[in-house]
Amino acid sequence: MLSLLSKIIKTGRITEPAPSLEDAAFVEAGRNLKATIGRLYGGRSLRIRHIDAGSNNGEEYEMTALGNAYYDVERFGLSFVASPRHADILTVSGPVTRNMEHALKVAYEMTPEPRIVVAVGDGACTGGIWKGSYAVVGSVADVIPVDWQIPGDPPAPADIIRGLLKAIEQARA
């Protein structure tokens, strides 16, 4: 018992200090986004439907991270929804594979107008390293009209937020 107590006292605190939850650049981008959404859409928030058209899931990790406690994108007026019927923005990742081409077109068709399509990641923008593969149709822009492209393999959450801001501004311009 004594040895245990002395061990506790001797060892002290060895956990790292809590990290600062404020990523200044990200918060800056998010605040801008929130202000823009508030200005353009009268204080209402936007819904995103994400479509994986054949990516290597790098973009999906980053998109998922947007929703976690650290980035907490919902405070900036963005949220993810499960159906294109509910979405304002379609984010598409990956080169469009032949298997997903039809599904992508259908999902685009089902999204109510006015819809904003954002290609996320190098694969979605250009076809990336898969460009020219027999399994790939091409970039997202080859299949459906794209409003904005966010390059990066994968793009960081802050990049995605900035890209979305540009996309919204451009779509409402």
Partner: peptide, 10 residues
Amino acid sequence: VRITDTWDCG
């Protein structure tokens, strides 16, 4: 009103 198909969740 834009008339499209029913959303069938794929």
